[in-house]
């Protein structure tokens, strides 16, 4: 299994969040919004703006700087 930063995934890709390598505060924020390790996400949009991921059909937009630090196993 490979891990890639969320920003390197393409729309339609699915994967499980492996690790978040941001500061503790931002990481906890992400966790508590549903993006904790072990969660499966689907990438909805990833071009120049914030990355949009879907968790069971619910969309969350994550700024690119932060998305770079979310490592996804695919």
């Amino acid at each position: 299994m490979k891990t890639k930063a969320l920003t390197h995934l393409k729309p339609g890709d699915r994967g499980v969040i492996k690790e978040i390598v941001a500061g503790n505060c931002a990481t906890k924020r992400l966790y508590e919004m549903g993006l904790n390790t072990g969660t499966e996400v689907k990438v909805v949009k990833n071009d120049t703006g914030p990355v949009i991921v879907s968790l069971f059909g619910n969309k969350i937009a994550v700024g690119r700087g932060l998305a770079e630090k979310i490592m996804i196993a695919i």
Partner: peptide, 10 residues
Amino acid sequence: GETSYFIMEL
């Protein structure tokens, strides 16, 4: 200083 990250539900 740092701008905070953008995280938002749509």
